[in-house]
Amino acid sequence: MRLISLTAIAAITAFPLFAHADDRIEDALEARHGYMTMLAINMGTLAGMAKGEIEYDEAAASTAGANIEALGNYAVSDLFIEGTANGEVDDSDALPAIWENPDDFVQKFADLGEAAAGAGEAVKGGQANVGPVVQKLGGTCKVCHDDYRKKD
């Protein structure tokens, strides 16, 4: 009886610690997916305009470009904390290679930032200006996905 209550007390007091660790992981994962979705929404707008599936609208294009620029400047290290790799937590497509090649991973995000620089301005002035920006940005998506994202 005593053992059970001790165990219960230990479990109850320890619980917040576990919960806390879990929260960090959960938050990073959720934020990461949100970050990628935000990129996807804005990239979707630009890609749609480049293909002519969405009618070109200079203001909307520029907003999407500027959003990607802002996201490209965001330091993502907090979104890729240890313990959030595929296999360590459910619903993660982040390959362990990220944590094995941190410098290269950071560089690939820097490449996105570089490609995104000035995107808000570059997509102004006509539908024909959107395609090159999408290609430059999309190329950096692919390079990073190829090495660091699980295909599923």
């Binding site: 996807a40 979707g44 630009l46 890609a47 999408v134 290609q135 999309g138 190329g139 692919k142 996905h145």
Partner: peptide, 8 residues
């Protein structure tokens, strides 16, 4: 769809 918006 590789979700890179260029090679779909």
């Amino acid at each position: 769809d590789p979700e890179d918006f260029v090679n779909v």
